[in-house]
Design a protein around this nucleic acid. Structure first.
Lengths: 109, 109
DNA sequence: TTTATATATCGTAATATTGCAATACATAGT
DNA sequence: ACTATGTATTGCAATATTACGATATATAAA
């Protein structure tokens, strides 16, 4: 146990859950907001700006990369990260469909 | 360690992360989709339809309830669950702002 | 009151996540 | 080659999550 039973759910359910899990940490939200705010690559900077150790931030960046949410390019000594537009669009689409499925009708509870 | 450093992030970052975390499991997405599909309360039913033990589903329902995403009303022997419209709206707003902050400009990476 | 049914809680095992120090790696400049 | 700088990886401790059997609780029906 302690292992999610992915096999009993649909591919879309698992995919959306995986994407949301990658977003579901304040440090990763902060990292993404920092990238979004600059509207371009972010090279370095992140370690000084967030109050976390360099190893911790590198780990969060790796998770975002693994989920396909960001992509990195080596730029000399440092690495530049930016949003992966394809995955971002996917999140918007899947999340939009999920959230939009709620039609607020008569209150029942 | 093993404990998220919530104190170094903003209230909004922590709130969004908490809400997304509650959604970030295929079983909980499936539960919510089941409620959304019926467009009304769901009383019972969930245990037979998902392939998880009753205790496990009850635990997932509790997490969704704790996050304020669903609300339950005792209806005789069973309990009826439905979407909490306030929280659902909050998720839509916060997530919309977060995702909408991405303006796809020139590719840099 | 007893029984049946539905849901919640407890306890526990397996696994995952978070955070960081230490260290490795990789590139730029000297 | 050596050094400095930025990032990744490793190893580990603390904590959280997932799943479920067993059991408790609560209401309805007999």
């Amino acid at each position: 146990m302690g292992l999610t039973k992915t096999e009993i759910f649909s591919t879309e359910q698992n995919q959306l859950a995986t994407l949301l899990k990658a977003l579901a940490h304040p440090a990763r939200i902060a990292i993404l907001q920092r990238i979004l705010a600059s509207n371009t690559c972010i090279c370095g900077d992140l370690v000084e700006e967030l109050g976390l150790a360099q190893a911790t931030i590198s780990q969060h960046l790796k998770e975002l990369k693994n989920a396909g949410i960001i992509q990195g390019t080596i730029e000399g000594v440092s690495v530049c990260y930016c949003i992966n537009p394809v995955t971002w669009k996917l999140i918007e689409t899947q999340m939009g469909a999920f959230l939009g499925a709620y039609k607020q009708e008569a209150d029942c509870c």
